[in-house]
Write a protein that binds this DNA or RNA. Structure first.
Lengths: 129, 129
DNA sequence: TTGCAACTACGAAATATTTCGTATATATTT
DNA sequence: AAATATATACGAAATATTTCGTAGTTGCAA
């Protein structure tokens, strides 16, 4: 057996996933270089994390070339949803609206994005103006 | 020295803080009982966590009675903001709007709350309709 | 005044996660 | 062909976090 659960990735695993989601299937070398743009981390450290992720079926490894290529098996949206649920519970006691208010209040958002959100609100309110 | 940093509480610490934020200064016994409504956890485990939190200045301990009373030193809002920032970065690569859309989409929110959010949107857009 | 119940202190084990050194294999360059 | 660069595998140390047993106190009830 072996299934791609919507497991909760650890912090280090999530960082790797972000690189893969953003850039598609990549080698350890590439991922490690990306990570090093932000923080210092050894090559074998990244390698190890990705090996563990392979065992957990979070990524799939293509070994046809000497440099293995890793592809994410977890979907970005599904994983975000999963993490959001947990975060909402633990940090906001489940109050989505409070989280949303904080997120909108503390971070700059473009008018376009605000409009998208407004559209969503309209849909949610069932057209109520 | 010793200051009440907006430190990142661990999961266990956050659970304790939620109880304190929601109920005000409490004893270990009370906190432990609350936690046990959700999951099983030993009394001394909770005690230990709260002792560590005291050392980290996340809570203050009143020892005047035999049962010590713990009061949160971290503010709920500030802590949420801190955690949200981190979460936004790690899970949504900083895109507040994507997080908001997901949060609104996946969780039921009352019309009143939606209106609150709409008001906030209006303010943020600077009145642009 | 004895004994039980409820507390705190504290060390240490159990887990979970991250980090990296070393060995070894395989390309590539000179 | 030798030296050098680049990969993977793997064990194990370093950290971080959680969990709990045990010892010792104190309050209270029988």
């Amino acid at each position: 057996m072996a299934d791609a659960q919507p497991l909760k990735p650890t912090d280090a695993e999530l960082e790797v996933l972000q690189v893969l989601w953003q850039n598609g299937p990549s080698t350890v070398r590439f991922v490690n270089d990306e990570l090093n743009k932000t923080k210092e981390v050894g090559y074998t450290t990244t390698l190890k994390i990705m090996q563990l992720m392979t065992e957990k079926n979070m990524v799939r490894r293509d070994e046809s070339n000497r440099s293995h290529v890793y592809e994410p098996l977890l979907k970005e949206e599904a994983t975000q949803k999963h993490l959001l649920d947990k975060f909402l519970d633990s940090a906001f006691r489940g109050s989505a609206s409070r989280l949303v208010m904080q997120a909108l209040g503390n971070h700059q958002t473009t008018p376009e994005e605000l409009n998208q959100i407004r559209d969503l609100l309209n849909k949610l309110e069932g057209g109520t103006k």
